[in-house]
């Protein structure tokens, strides 16, 4: 599903990764952790095709990402759900319009999609805020709206970068439950977080592996986490 092979990323003189390899099988749940600046966001951005590695290969959904045309990248993104820490929205569109964007840009506008949108907004607890504008939402509501948008097209893979970064513990648990629910539906989930308590909470409820980025390398975290 997602495969990184000897990936290296550097920014100027600073090398972030020099030789990272990783395989995430279909239907798996992985947490990605590590200290600030270790490259969690960069790794998520590599997997969401928002950037290219300096060397090595990224394979996604069976295709090598490098060399894909912009339209092919867009087509691949329709099978990916991405939740960023900063939850980017189009601020002059309502919450419902933002959540429905993936369906609108792919022309999926039938009754089924309409029902799906209604279900999704209810699932993330935003049915009452459908007509609000994104700047009117709280941090937790924005993260949940981003999550709803990410799964609007029922993607095969969900990439979440610090989805609980700006919310309180109760909301973090709520978002975690949503991610676990998606994983139980067969979605591959990769969630970057620095919140070890959240990871401990999740491990009791789902078979999740924890990957730790440290010193430019990636390792599977042990039981002592």
């Amino acid at each position: 599903m997602i495969e990184l092979d000897k990936v290296a990323v550097s920014f100027g003189d600073r090398t972030l990764f020099s030789d990272v390899s990783l395989i995430l099988p279909p239907g798996s749940f992985h947490f990605l952790t590590g200290p600030s600046g270790s490259g969690k966001t960069t790794l998520i951005r590599l997997c969401s095709m928002e950037m290219q590695p300096n060397s090595g290969q990224v394979q996604l959904l069976g295709k090598t990402v490098s060399g894909l045309s912009q339209n092919n990248v867009s087509a691949m993104r329709q099978r990916l759900g991405v939740v960023h820490q900063d939850s980017r929205f189009i601020d002059h569109l309502s919450v419902a319009e933002n959540v429905a964007l993936p369906a609108a840009v792919t022309g999926k506008t039938g009754r089924h999609t309409e029902y799906q949108l209604e279900e999704l907004l209810a699932w993330v607890g935003l049915a009452g805020q459908a007509k609000n504008l994104p700047p009117e939402l709280s941090g937790g509501e924005r993260q949940r709206a981003a999550l709803a948008r990410a799964v609007m097209l029922s993607p095969d893979v969900l990439l979440a970068d610090e989805p609980t970064g700006n919310v309180d513990w109760d909301m973090s648990i709520h978002i975690l439950e949503l991610l676990i629910e998606l994983n139980k539906l067969g979605k591959t989930v990769l969630c970057a977080t620095h919140d070890l308590n959240l990871i401990r909470q999740a491990k009791s409820r789902v078979s999740a592996k924890v990957l730790r980025l440290h010193g430019g390398a990636i390792e599977i975290a042990g039981a002592g986490l």
Binding site: N71, V82, I90, P102
Partner: peptide, 16 residues
């Protein structure tokens, strides 16, 4: 640019 970023993130093609 932010609108374009969001549209690309959700899979909008250049034509759209």
């Amino acid at each position: 640019a932010q609108v374009v970023d969001v549209l690309r993130l959700v899979g909008a093609k250049n034509g759209w």
